[in-house]
């Protein structure tokens, strides 16, 4: 446990000092800011059934596909290329601690980015509430959406780390991660809509899960599914790191 905390602290410090973190933060906030602005414009001209905040959470796929590959591509690929991974594994650190340390640091940053992006709906709510006569941010949607982001990010970041553990090149890692995430979105969607597994496939539909959570329905099955797949992928990442280092 101590080793995990040491590695986590080291990773967080590394992120804090690295310019790329600030670039990714700026990119994420710009992306989300413009998206929210677009949602507000769209809602001012159209009547929609769901709230602006729910729509804001509904575009989770965009930052997932753009930001997660950028956040995770460096983690193992770059360290392996530089030989730092070999040096680290010659110490009593277990591969699992290493994977958990890296995962928690990236997960923490991604959650913080989402938390920061909630400034947009919050300010919009603050300025527009009186004119609209109804709040733009409701606690139910805020909690539901946040839980959704927390659970699905677990799975997405695991996929990113797995992609990074397979190669020495950051570019290849980011492309692999993008491919995995895209397959994940389209695969689960196809599974839930078009196949004969439709009955249980609906539980792995991201959009349906988000809708349920925002409506106050907490179905444990999809949440458990996403978390378990995330854990499984992290275990695969540990195996990949170990096997690649053993060569």
């Amino acid at each position: 446990m101590n080793t995990v905390l040491t590695l986590l602290a080291s990773e967080c410090k590394k992120m804090l000092y690295h310019a790329s973190t600030y670039f990714i933060t700026a990119l994420f906030l710009t992306l989300m800011g413009f998206n929210y602005l677009y949602i507000l414009f769209f809602y001012s001209r159209n009547t929609m059934e769901i709230s602006t905040l729910q729509s804001f959470f509904c575009i989770f796929w965009l930052p997932t596909l753009c930001i997660i590959p950028l956040l995770t591509m460096k983690s193992f690929a770059e360290e392996r290329r530089l030989g730092l991974l070999e040096s680290l594994l010659s110490t009593p650190v277990s591969v699992h601690s290493l994977v958990i340390g890296k995962f928690l640091s990236i997960y923490g940053l991604y959650v913080v980015l989402w938390a920061l992006s909630l400034i947009f709906p919050y300010f919009a709510n603050y300025w527009l509430q009186q004119d609209l006569g109804a709040p733009l941010v409701t606690m139910q949607v805020l909690f539901g959406g946040s839980i959704f982001i927390a659970i699905t990010s677990f799975l997405f970041i695991s996929l990113g780390l797995f992609a990074s553990s397979l190669t020495k090149s950051q570019t290849v890692a980011s492309l692999l991660c993008f491919g995995f995430l895209f397959t994940c979105f389209t695969g689960f969607r196809t599974l839930s809509e078009y196949t004969r597994f439709q009955e249980w496939g609906i539980y792995v539909d991201f959009f349906r899960t988000l809708e349920d959570l925002c409506n106050g329905i907490f179905d444990l099955r999809p949440c458990l599914f996403f978390t378990l797949v995330g854990v499984l992928i992290l275990a695969l990442t540990a195996i990949a790191v170990e096997q690649k280092s053993l060569r």
Partner: peptide, 10 residues
């Protein structure tokens, strides 16, 4: 100490 001595530059 591995060959080529990899160290974090930053």
């Amino acid at each position: 100490m591995p060959e080529n001595n990899p160290l974090p530059e930053d």
